[in-house]
Design a protein around this nucleic acid. Structure first.
Lengths: 233, 233
DNA sequence: AAGTGGTCTAGACCACGCG
DNA sequence: GCGTGGTCTAGACCACTTA
């Protein structure tokens, strides 16, 4: 029954997980502090800290100075999604990637776009629409507005062979952004482009990225029916 | 031009971000090793390590032993989603939460379910269907199968006042799981339950959780039209 | 006021994986 | 082989928060 010593932070983490799982530490319970656990586990406090901090990061523990560490009563599952360049996503699934540019214009965006991007309502910026294909079938429609005041280089790009999706990832760094997922009915136009029935349910991903205070780009990706965004828990 | 010293790992991280952003370190570039950076920044190597490890975790750097640290050429954006209990989600938006159980039965699941859960095809397990409401309007339909071999306590729960969604979060720990998001057309039945037009586009979240080798529960949540899953980047 | 987690340090050893 | 990141240690100081 003598505890083996734990030699690395992952084994400490595993042991903590085991105790939570075995209900030795039930949801809501206060667990021993780092110093005590370090003694018990036979390792340095920083090792315990690393393990517990990581678990707190994944939502399983709630930590507060002075108050101590508690097992989360209602663990909020944290799922991490990897949002890659579409071409890579398609090729990783073993399909042939295709790309068709349909619109490239300098235009005044709708108010919903200029408002979200915090640019003056009558500013003319770059608008790009394109279709991404997997094995010659529609994969996703990209509808994007690019703030050419912030990314002037984009104005020189034709986006005929390299998608804006890919180009921006490489040449337009951002400091932060927002992303939203939803389900949308295909418009008549979208349905025709994708060659799917009208009112099909499409998976929508809306992204808005910022460079400091200035918006970089706003994009809506509409994925063909059947698309799934997956990850582990 | 004399470099200020960096006193904590976040300021080191900010400086590294600045350099990447300013293209002093371009995508694909090899950056100095930890020891050198520690000297330059006037801090301990472990501080630099913490900063770089964190950036690698968010996909902005690629690190390999011996090969060193490179700025990611195609940064894969990592978005972290917080999947909370539905009741909390609704209440946080300021709505009144409601819940209606519609089905609670012991039944043989369809093959798609028993297959995914890796249970024998004719096993009878617990099936629950329920509607979650926000301000008396349909918010989400929950359709869930619970492996009562693994979670025997669930068989004693009526789920009449506490949703399975909430109960399981508290009493059925899991070691890992999978989650998938997609868009689906509302079936006639779903549309009626939610009081929305047939074929509306619904946001679907499928989750399957495991306790070691055994499946715990499989759930599909269908969210009413308009639902958005949001997060930062 | 005092206990807790958050972080930094300086040094050390190790595992991986290029060359 | 050997340079790199990955990690551990023992000790220290600090910031936050609760009692």
């Amino acid at each position: 029954m003598n505890a083996p010593t734990f030699r690395n932070w992952q084994s400490v983490q595993d042991e903590v997980l085991r105790r939570i799982h075995a209900r030795e530490w039930a949801p809501g319970d206060l667990i021993p502090n780092e110093a005590d656990l370090a003694v018990e586990f036979g390792c340095a406090r920083s090792t315990v800290n690393r393990a517990l901090r990581s678990l707190a990061g994944s939502g399983l523990l709630d930590r507060k100075r002075k108050a101590g560490t508690r097992v989360a009563a209602q663990p909020v599952a944290k799922a991490t999604l990897d949002i890659a360049v579409i071409r890579h996503e398609v090729e990783e699934h073993g399909f042939k990637y295709g790309y068709q540019l349909s619109v490239r214009e300098i235009a005044v965006p709708p108010l919903s776009v200029s408002g979200a991007m915090k640019i003056v309502a009558d500013a003319r910026i770059l608008h790009v629409r394109a279709l991404h294909l997997a094995d010659d079938e529609a994969y996703a429609i990209e509808d994007r507005w690019i703030n050419t005041l912030i990314v002037p280089d984009a104005a020189a790009e034709t986006f005929q062979s390299v998608s804006a999706n890919e180009w921006l990832m490489k040449y337009a760094p951002y400091t932060h952004g927002e992303i939203a997922f939803s389900a949308m009915q295909a418009s008549a136009e979208d349905a025709e482009i994708m060659a799917v029935p009208e009112y099909s349910a499409l998976f929508a991903m809306d992204r808005l990225t910022w460079d400091g205070e200035a918006s970089v780009t706003k994009v809506r990706l509409l994925f063909a029916p059947g698309y799934q965004l997956r990850t582990g828990l």
